[in-house]
Design a protein around this nucleic acid. Structure first.
Lengths: 134, 134
DNA sequence: CTTAAAATGTTATATTATAACATTACAATA
DNA sequence: TATTGTAATGTTATAATATAACATTTTAAG
């Protein structure tokens, strides 16, 4: 079995490609409108590709924005958990990697007798560029 | 100016009431269907009440589930930031309060030259009850 | 009282996502 | 290579979530 990325199907590659070439997260219907020339005609085709890409960790969903972003980390282990810095000014998104987050959240959960499995974290504020401009 | 809770309007009270008496987060249309006997007829009436309740911190939205939960903390300051433990088995939700989260996230953001303003955190796993049952 | 801001009621519509089902591609292996 | 089971596809329809627009009413402060 080769790497997951090698096995992507046509639709999956098409969707991943547009996400990887975007400087910001994209919405499912934005993706759809942008690639209707490439053989994808229905929302379901986009959502199915996204589901698969999320499953293998190549794409993450940003829940509070209903948008999707390609993961830039080679062997990203964030198949389940995600942590983002989201700029309220320019909408840029940076993924946090340091996995001390995992152990920190485990401890927080522990205090409540809760068994940590995974998390979504979205931090909002100003990115470096926008801080300087304001 | 009295406390915000005193100033709630009829629709806002109706929506808050159903959320406070629910053991789990509710979706907007679930709320709508449940209270159509109380004079609320359209989705917009529910969403407007929710918007206001969220604004004053009496209700929080759980982004990954498109659902809403009443805040049980008297003077909840989570008007903007929220932190939840969400049980994957029974869908129960507990809100985290310890605001060491704030300073922790500030530091994480700082490392990326990002100016922290607020956050949403959703931790998934098993609650105490469901841990024992499994 | 007056008045300005907020909330309401209502209809329509936009946005996000999935159901259902028939068909096709594809890799493993007998 | 023929078989076969799994995954992916294509397509139409529809479900679920949320907002636009606008006329009207309520409310609370001065």
């Amino acid at each position: 079995m080769a790497l997951a990325s090698v096995n992507l199907t046509k639709n999956q590659k098409t969707v991943l490609d547009i996400l990887e070439n975007s400087s910001e997260p994209l919405k499912a219907y934005t993706i759809l409108f942008d690639i209707q020339k490439k053989g994808i005609k229905s929302p379901l085709q986009v959502y199915r590709a996204l589901d698969k890409l999320i499953e293998i960790g190549k794409v993450h969903k940003i829940e509070s924005r209903n948008s999707y972003v390609a993961c830039k980390h080679e062997g990203c282990n964030a198949k389940t958990s995600t942590s983002f810095l989201i700029c309220e000014n320019c909408d840029s998104v940076t993924e946090l990697t340091g996995n001390n987050l995992f152990s920190y959240f485990s401890k927080q959960a522990e205090k409540n007798n809760f068994n940590y499995k995974k998390h979504n974290l979205e931090i909002f504020g100003l990115c470096e560029n926008c801080k300087l401009k304001n």
